[in-house]
Design a protein around this nucleic acid. Structure first.
Length: 548
RNA sequence: GCGCCUGUAGCUCAGUGGAUAGAGCGGAUGGCUUCGGACCAUCAGGUCGCGGGUUCGAAUCCUGCCAGGCGCGCCA
């Protein structure tokens, strides 16, 4: 539709109906919106308002001049082009076009709503990335859902998406976990800094004798041996939890592998080639200030060990070497201080810093009985993701996070969520889907089937056309969601579509054995609606039940 | 102190340059002998944190305040 208006604009200029935008003045972008008010048509463009300034003419005059060109460009696609003060052009779709589009949507089936954006990318989405020292807890929930939701949306827009989980498989945390398990197994008191959750006791009980023997033999190094076993055990549990949420990772990457395979060393020398690496006080530094950071950053400590940041830059080069042209990191908001240094390093190594993007996920305060739940893996006081989802359900949780922007802090009242779950909007949408499925079953009993094509059969019914128009918005909703890297548009759309359907159901009888022609057309329409609901829910990883 | 994020209905949140600022929950009232009442309809509820500015037009952009969160390590 935007293209159509742009084409009309170009032709209006070519034919002399409108003056061209003067040299040196930036031409405005064409905005096409879906008016909230049905009287304003199916689409509206503000082009005339935008052109008022550069052309130095009143918007209404421009709109009048533009209207015939839009009419001509629209051909039989548009049934109406109206000028409305203060200078909007309101466009109305021809029923025949809507009918044809609906037919195409039904043929596309599960692919309806998937789009192919002009510039597709190979995208790496790294998320969760919690170190395997304990089960995922509710603090990890938001990142897991946001990363998965975003991955689904990007894939639906035609991008090639790889979901990646990064974790540390050696180092202090893993040794502490090992020491904790070891102490419990030996019946010794836990070290001061130990992990204390019930899962630690479970691990101690499950520790194979063979590992235990090797650890005992190794003495002090035994913590690492037990830790390696325990962290892999925990990691597998994390993977199982995530799969249970419908979150599947394509790649599990360890920090250790980056060191072993030389990525860290190579990245540092590559960084050195840019001249932004220096030594001071026995440590190796990256001159991050050269790119606007407020201080330089240590890559290798004076004791010879690499910092976490060193692994970050090694990982950057490793990711780019795999051919990704867009790296997305889903990080907790508390990591925002590290954003600049990583992007700076990417730039210094000659990568496009714009291709490296961090999405900072704001904090979620989990509240039960009016009290915030504090979480600490060390103390063992936390609620696992599995426990949370057993309480409120995967579908409700996914909806909850999909409906909110990732930058806003959220209060998640668990009791309230449970109490409201029966009234959760997600069930409203699922109900609409189940209701349509029920209608289709009922129709089959009456020996009525959806029409193969709705051509010529909806055109005179504004209620049917209204539902069809709502159904046909899906591809544009997906495109917008992918472009904005946001999912709230999907939940809003699903709600509106369900509402429109329920109103249609109230006003129009679908299954009517006395009028098979109308029934067939309406069955086709509601089936298309069911398809749009199912595809939208699928995009969010939410089930679309046939009955409930 | 500096940096980033947030502030919209009683609650939880959408809306980031357009037409009368929306939804869900909660509240009030009404609606099936007929395709699923987990539904529908109507009503109440707003200084869009506050003040300036830009614009034909600002919740949206700029700026100064106020409030809350997070960060500012040779930790990870």
């Amino acid at each position: 539709m935007r293209e159509l208006v742009e084409r009309a604009w170009a032709e209006a200029v070519a034919s002399g109906a409108l003056p061209a935008v003067p040299e040196g003045v930036e031409a405005p972008g064409v905005g096409v919106a879906r008016p909230a008010n049905p009287e304003h048509g199916d689409f509206a463009t503000n082009l005339a308002l935008k052109l008022a300034r550069p052309l130095r003419r009143p918007p209404l005059v421009i709109a009048e001049a533009l209207a015939p060109a839009v009419r001509a460009a629209g051909g039989d696609l548009l049934s109406g082009v109206e000028v409305a003060p203060p200078g909007f052009l309101n466009l109305r779709l021809a029923p025949a076009f809507t009918e044809a589009a609906l037919d195409r949507a039904r043929v596309a089936g599960p692919a309806f709503g998937r789009v192919q954006v002009e510039r597709t990318r190979r995208v790496n989405v790294e998320f969760v990335s919690a170190n395997p020292t304990g089960p995922l807890h509710i603090g990890n929930a938001r990142g897991a859902f946001v990363g998965d939701l975003l991955s689904r949306v990007l894939a639906a827009a035609g991008h090639e998406v790889t979901r990646e989980y990064y974790f540390n498989d050696f180092g202090a945390q893993v040794r502490v976990l090992g020491a904790s398990v070891r102490a419990l197994r030996a019946g010794e008191p836990l070290p001061e800094e130990a992990y204390r959750g019930a899962y630690v006791a479970d691990l101690a009980a499950e520790l194979p004798d063979e590992v235990w023997a090797r650890a005992t033999e190794a003495g002090a190094d035994g913590d690492g041996i037990v830790g390696a076993w325990a962290s892999e055990r925990v990691r597998a549990g994390i993977e199982a939890s995530l799969e249970h949420l419908g979150v599947h990772f394509d790649v599990w990457k360890t920090e250790g592998s980056l060191h072993r395979e030389g990525w860290v060393e190579r990245a540092i020398s590559r960084l050195g080639e840019s001249g932004h690496v220096y030594e001071q006080d026995g440590a190796v530094w990256f001159r991050s200030t050269a790119f606007g950071d407020d201080k330089d950053r240590v890559i290798r400590k004076s004791d010879g060990a690499y910092t976490y940041f060193a692994a970050d830059i090694g990982y950057l080069t490793e990711k780019f070497s795999r051919g990704f042209d867009h790296l997305i990191y889903i990080w907790g908001a508390d990591h925002h201080g590290t954003v600049a240094r990583v992007r700076n390093a990417a730039q210094a190594m000659g990568f496009d810093r714009e291709a490296v993007q961090m999405l900072l996920i704001a904090w979620v305060r989990f509240i039960r009985d009016g009290v915030e739940i504090s979480m600490s893996k060390r103390s063992g006081e936390f609620i696992t993701l599995d426990e949370l989802l057993a309480e409120i359900g995967v579908d409700a949780a996914r909806w909850f996070f999909a409906a909110r922007g990732h930058t806003v802090g959220i209060d998640f009242d668990i009791e309230l969520a449970k109490k409201q779950s029966a009234e959760n909007p997600v069930y409203y949408v699922q109900y609409a889907h189940a209701r349509i499925a029920s209608i289709l079953r009922r129709a089959a009993e009456e020996r009525l089937a959806p029409a193969a094509s709705v051509r010529g059969s909806l055109g005179r019914d504004p209620v049917a056309l209204g539902l069809a128009a709502q159904v046909l918005r899906l591809p544009e909703v997906v495109e917008d969601a992918a472009a904005a890297e946001e999912t709230q548009g999907l939940t809003a759309y699903a709600m509106e579509l369900a509402t429109t359907f329920h109103a249609f159901y109230r006003d129009r009888r679908v299954v009517d054995a006395g009028d098979p022609a109308v029934s067939a057309a309406r069955l086709a329409l509601v089936d298309a609606c069911r398809l749009a609901l199912a595809n939208t829910l699928e995009l969010m990883g939410i089930s679309a039940p046939e009955s409930m």
